[in-house]
């Protein structure tokens, strides 16, 4: 589904990704963990097409397509979704209107008919139910004045609605208290299915108590230095990143 090979990327003169390899199969959940500054967010941004990063080597293939050649909106049309670490506020833009425009632009790009207001509202209600959210978010401007928890919930809600094939959750747990974390994790779990892959980028193991990954990868200095099952996350939680970095240096 997603195949990343030897990915190198820099911001200005600084090389942040130094040869990253990752294979994600359909329906798999991969956790990417790593210390601050290891390149976690850069990786999320490069996958979703944000400006300001120069890819100098390597490839990213998504369902046979060269993802790096596409504009951000084209990636979204293919089914790539980024849940932002810091969701952006759009003052004055109604959340429902935004969601409808986003969904319809994706449907249009896929050659599907656009949803009218009635069917869209029906769909929204259904998704709210799955995620156990109330509709108060719908009437407000996109993320404007939302609390940290509300912003993250709104991201998951967008994900539920846009039904991506590959969701990248960029430190979705950051800034959340334990209750908010639960709500978000429950939402993610509700959206798990055999066709939907996820990359969960996180600093702490905590989130993985709620979202159980198939694979765990440790990212350090711009590449993946260790991969394993969910037990690797527990080991990291216990020992920190230090030991793994030392082992890496010794090797």
């Amino acid at each position: 589904m997603l195949s990343v090979k030897g990915l190198r990327a820099k911001v200005g003169e600084n090389e942040i990704l130094t040869g990253l390899d990752l294979e994600v199969g359909p329906g798999e959940i991969h956790a990417i963990m790593g210390p601050n500054g290891s390149g976690k967010s850069t990786f999320s941004h490069v996958l979703s097409g944000r400006e300001g990063y120069e890819v100098t080597a390597g490839s990213v293939t998504f369902e046979g397509q060269d993802l790096l050649a596409l504009e951000p909106e084209e990636r979204a049309h293919l089914g790539v979704f980024l849940a932002f670490q810091y969701p952006v506020e759009l003052p004055g833009v109604n959340n429902t209107y935004f969601l409808k425009a986003a969904l319809n632009s994706i449907r249009k790009a896929r050659g599907e008919s656009e949803l009218d207001a009635v069917s869209f509202l029906r769909l929204i209600k259904e998704k709210l139910k799955i995620l156990h959210l109330n509709d108060s978010l719908l009437k407000r401007a996109v993320n404007a004045g939302f609390s940290g928890g509300e912003k993250k919930r709104n991201e998951i809600f967008q994900m539920a609605l846009l039904e991506p094939k590959l969701a990248i959750l960029d430190e979705t747990d950051s800034g959340l208290d334990i209750d908010a974390l639960r709500v978000v994790a429950d939402g993610v779990n509700a959206l798990r299915n055999p066709e939907r892959s996820m990359i969960v980028v996180t600093h702490y193991q905590r989130l993985l108590d709620y979202i159980e990954p198939d694979r765990v990868h440790v990212l350090a200095k711009g590449r993946i230095i260790r991969s394993g099952g969910k037990e690797l996350a527990l080991e990291l939680e216990e020992k920190g990143y230090g030991w793994i970095l030392e082992q890496e240096q010794a090797a």
């Binding site: 504009e71 951000p72 909106e73 980024l82 759009l90 004055g92 425009a101 986003a102 632009s105």
Partner: peptide, 28 residues
């Protein structure tokens, strides 16, 4: 901001749609 444009584009909207949406919101 570039952040706003990128956010909208990552949701499948073109840059033009994004700007038009933000401007209309500003003028509401």
């Amino acid at each position: 901001s570039d952040d706003q444009l990128f956010y909208c584009r990552s949701r499948g909207l073109t840059e033009e749609d994004a700007v038009s949406m933000i401007v209309n919101g500003f003028c509401k």
